[in-house]
Nucleic acid binder design. Structure first.
Length: 556
RNA sequence: GCGCCUAUAGCUCAGUGGAUAGAGCACCGGCCUCCGGAGCCGGGUGCGGGGGUUCGAGUCCCUCUAGGCGCGCCA
């Protein structure tokens, strides 16, 4: 494949390499027009429809404005003055109102197949760029089980991390544990109430506490192990800590069963009190704080926030936000150049003050990115299911995984962009049915593995792809060549759901091909060529599923 | 009231400023002497309303309407 452009575009996949070369040639052609000294850089896009070549450019429209000539005329000029020698491009033509359409040469498709097969499980992967990224996601309070929204965030976050790693970042996955503060205190009191109830005493869950079932179970276990725990002095019971650790362990297990493994579970308690004090001191040293009404305020409104925020309350306690600022400060101090937070919609109003804090602490504002993960609305028989933690009635992530399975759940959550609301109708039980899209993609992979098993031999690394000239074969080749660019766009745009659509399309193209063309036993060199195509398709499907955290089965 | 998200086919949703806007589900009709039928093929006058920018707008800007979420010395 290196005959194309040598080392000039090393690191780029074939399609991107070719696209860059075409742009250069276009740019060069533009310079030959009288009166254009420094033409703008051309664009090169994917045609929206078949029959318009493999690349399309609207360059003629742009130049037409500059030279004050009709776009079709400019387009024709560019085609005439375009030098495509040495490129895997069969031709260029001016079309329509001034579009430029390029058709790739057969050699390109041969090279695509060779590239996929040669790079294998690393097809489309970028080399490491040395930049460290911290991706924080889920970060649910340790006051109960994970719910369906957490499951969505986990799928999105984990796959986004995988994507960023794929394009070269050194990514760490992190879960922020809010193991300090009032909620945790209430959790301990709620557990104590449950313990007393089990002992036959009259005790009620405190206002704002946690009435759900799981604390009762936890109390039972605890009482069985340590019957005398309530006889201990309150300080030695450690009820809050026990409840937090119990919940954390439960969360960790559920996430592990979902294929999500964190590099770090960062505890809020580790920030108290020194890191919080340091942070406040730094803000003060920077002139960003002032006293008022007995409290210490952060002048966040000077940095884009709606109003100023309290850091130290009149009673001397620091606020949650003070700790969170300390947390973000720690992220940067730990050496991450980019910190990405996945946030629920109920916290998005919180973002401006954190951004203000990051800036006031001297870190680049664009070093913090926030990705909004919208709500999941649970429906059962068309009715919304209440998801109030306080009321203790919510559908847990564990229940979801028990019903649907990890593969289907992850696949489902990755089909929508994370900032769009999502309806999840349990009564449809779609996830359990065979028409679930995840099976569609997995089935394509299993089918491919089956063909390759029957074939038995080695898949040829090199071969002539000109034999693959049927429309189904060309479409498959085309889609395979799009993968590096697609995965790159998904990572850069923080849009993991693009993987879903890519994978579904690839599986669909394969199924169409399969039903139309016989692979094994095909005449001449066709069997060999088709086996290569099938193997390459299977490889890319496997990569896509792997990035999504979904298994790629050998059979099913 | 202010801020953020959303509005695309009957339903759930894709869609990088470009040419004739796509999938899945649901519905109807076809396809296995043959590599896995969890599959394939065919069936569709839909971008909430109104302005604007542009050669060109589902996409960008303004506005209106509708839905969701947020606006604590809570976490």
């Amino acid at each position: 494949m290196s005959w194309l452009l040598g080392e000039v575009f090393e690191g780029l996949a074939l399609r991107e390499e070719t696209a860059e070369a075409i742009k250069e040639r276009l740019h060069h052609a533009a310079k030959t027009w009288e009166g254009i000294a420094d033409p703008p850089w051309p664009d090169l896009n994917l045609p929206t429809e078949r029959g318009r070549g493999d690349f399309t450019s609207t360059y003629a429209f742009v130049l037409a404005k500059i030279v004050r000539r009709p776009p079709p005329e400019v387009a024709r000029f560019l085609v005439e003055h375009l030098d495509l020698s040495g490129l895997a491009v069969a031709g260029a033509e001016a079309a329509g109102a001034g579009f430029l359409n390029f058709t790739l040469a057969p050699a390109f498709w041969s090279d695509v197949l060779a590239e996929v097969l040669a790079r294998g499980e690393n097809y489309g992967r970028r080399t490491e760029n040395g930049q460290r990224v911290l991706l924080e996601f889920v970060s649910a309070n340790p006051t109960g089980p994970l719910n369906v929204v957490n499951a969505r965030a986990a799928a999105v976050g984990d796959t986004l991390a995988a994507l960023l790693q794929w394009v070269g970042y050194a990514v760490d996955r992190e879960f922020y544990v809010n193991d300090a503060g009032r909620q945790v205190e209430l959790l301990g009191l709620s557990l104590e109430a449950r313990l007393r109830q089990l002992r036959g005493e009259v005790a009620s869950i405190p206002e704002g506490g946690y009435p759900a079932e799981y604390l009762l179970n936890m109390a039972r276990t605890l009482l069985a192990a340590e019957p005398e725990i309530l006889s201990l002095p309150p300080r030695e019971r450690g009820l809050s800590r026990r409840a937090v650790e119990g919940n954390l362990e439960d969360q960790r297990r559920v996430l592990a069963g979902y294929g999500v493994a964190y590099d770090c579970w960062f505890r809020e308690s580790a920030l108290h009190p020194e890191k919080v004090r340091e942070t406040i001191a730094e803000l003060t040293a920077g002139g960003f704080t002032y006293e008022g009404d007995g409290a210490l305020w952060f002048a966040s409104s000077r940095l884009g926030d709606d109003k100023d925020r309290v850091l130290v309350k009149a009673d001397g306690d620091t606020t949650y936000m003070a700790a969170d600022l300390a947390y973000h400060r720690e992220k940067f101090r730990r050496g991450y150049g980019l910190c990405i937070d996945l946030m629920g919609p109920d916290h998005h109003g919180y973002l401006p003050r954190i951004r203000a804090g990051v800036e006031a602490l001297g870190y680049p504002p664009d070093g913090l990115e926030v990705l909004l993960v919208q709500q999941v609305r649970l429906l059962r028989n068309g009715q919304a299911v209440t998801m109030s933690k306080r009321a203790g009635e919510f559908f847990t992530m564990r229940e979801l995984l028990d019903e649907a399975g990890s593969d289907a759940a992850r696949f489902f959550f990755l089909q929508r962009s994370s900032d769009s609301h999502l309806d999840f109708d349990l009564s449809l039980a779609r996830l359990q049915e065979n028409d679930n899209p995840v099976y569609y993609v997995q089935y394509a992979h299993a089918r491919i593995r089956s063909i390759l098993r029957r074939f038995g031999g080695e898949v040829a690394a090199e071969g002539d792809a000109t034999l693959l000239d049927a429309v189904e074969e060309r479409e498959l080749l085309r889609h395979l060549s799009l993968f590096p660019g697609e995965v790159d766009a998904a990572a850069r745009g923080r849009e993991p759901h693009r993987l879903y659509h890519y994978g579904l399309k690839l599986a669909g193209l394969f199924h169409s091909f399969y039903n139309q063309h016989r692979v094994l036993g095909a005449e001449g060199g066709v069997e060999k060529a088709r086996v290569r195509l099938v193997a390459a398709t299977g490889r890319v499907l496997q990569i896509v599923l792997s990035l999504m955290g979904v298994t790629a089965p050998e059979s099913m």
